[in-house]
Each structure stands twice: as structure tokens, then as C-alpha cells.
Design a binder for these strands. Structure first.
Length: 168
DNA sequence: TAAGGGTTGACAC
DNA sequence: GTGTCAACCCTTA
């Protein structure tokens, strides 16, 4: 299998984007480009060849450039391939996608949106979120105002919230 | 099948 | 205010 990939550097590190025929398959965060090698190796071992192709990511690069400049960006125009997630995870990710730029949501209210009482499961699904920033799990916090957790590190969560002018 | 998880709410101190 | 615990329910090993 062949997938396309590219990376986008920003102040705090680097975003690694992977695309298949259906759309974006993954957006992950790495602190620096040196850490990309082990990721590429893993794909090689799984018989997946990753081709660097910056042109195929023109739209994504443009959106992220604006986003990191602090402009309000709507990522809903991106085609995201949720097929790797479970039914429950897809529900949570879609609900998270609907959180507008600059707004916060709690794990509880997100659970309500999908008619669910398992707040922990919502956190679990967000932890598995393969689309960093495009599915804005950084906008989900605890009801008491604590940040909760973040797969890519709380430092990055704070940075992204500051970028969107959200005061904590 | 059991354990663990990015949580919450209730209760006791 | 802080700590503890049960309950929610999905995912993973």
C-alpha cells in the first residue's frame, strides 16, 4: 500500500500528515523532524510505503499556516478518513469537530451531545484522536476548569488554546 | 474477561 | 478546599 505524507513545521515542533485515497488518514505531532524517522520506519515494517508529496497537501498547508498565524480557521472543509476508529470513537470525533474556533467544551457536555454517560470513554476516544488540531480535542477540558489531559502533551494544549485567544 | 482510562458527582473531613 | 470512592462505559491485552 502507498500513502502520501508531508510535514508542517511551526513554533512548537512539527505536524506529520498522512493521506490516502479517501482523504487525510492521520495528523500527528512530533517535537522535531528527527523524530519522524522512527515513525517512517514503522510504516515500512508494515509494508506501507510513504511518499513525500507536498503538492498533495496544498490545502492543508494553507489552512495550518493561517491557523498558526492566529487566524480563525475552519478545518471542516478537510476530508478526514475516520475509518480506522470504532463506531463510538467516530461519534466523539465528529462531535469534537463541531466545536467552533475559540470555544471550549467539557468532557461532560461532549458526552451529552452524543447521548452518552461514560465520560471516561469520551476522554479515551479523544486520546485516540488521529487528527490533531483538525479534530480540536484541545478545546475539551474538565468541568472544574482543569485542562484534563492531552495526547501530544499539556504544553501543546496550552499553546493551542493561547493561539485561539482562549483564556484559562 | 479483567484492567485501565484525557471524568464526574457525592460524600466526609 | 481536598481526598476518596463508586459509577459511567469503551478499549485493549
Amino acid at each position: 500500500m502507498t500513502l502520501l505524507h508531508t510535514f508542517i513545521t511551526f513554533e512548537k515542533g512539527c505536524l506529520f500528515l498522512i493521506k490516502n485515497k479517501k482523504g487525510l488518514q492521520k495528523i500527528t505531532y512530533v517535537k522535531n523532524q528527527n523524530l519522524l524517522e522512527p515513525i517512517l520506519d514503522q510504516y515500512k515494517k508494515s509494508n506501507i510505503s510513504l511518499l513525500p508529496d507536498a503538492k498533495a497537501f496544498k490545502q492543508e498547508k494553507e489552512l495550518f499556516r493561517h491557523y498558526f498565524q492566529g487566524d480563525p480557521v475552519d478545518f471542516s472543509s478537510l476530508r478526514l478518513d475516520f475509518s480506522e476508529g470504532t463506531l463510538f470513537q467516530k461519534k466523539v470525533w465528529r462531535a469534537t469537530q463541531e466545536i467552533p474556533y475559540g470555544r471550549l467544551e467539557t468532557y461532560k457536555s461532549l458526552a451529552h451531545k452524543i447521548n452518552h454517560k461514560g465520560y471516561r470513554s469520551v476522554g479515551g476516544a479523544l486520546g485516540k484522536n488521529p487528527f490533531l488540531i483538525a479534530v480540536p480535542c484541545h478545546r475539551v477540558i474538565r468541568t472544574n476548569g482543569d485542562l484534563g489531559g492531552f495526547g501530544a502533551g499539556l504544553g501543546l494544549k496550552k499553546y493551542l488554546l493561547r493561539l485561539e485567544s482562549i483564556s484559562l
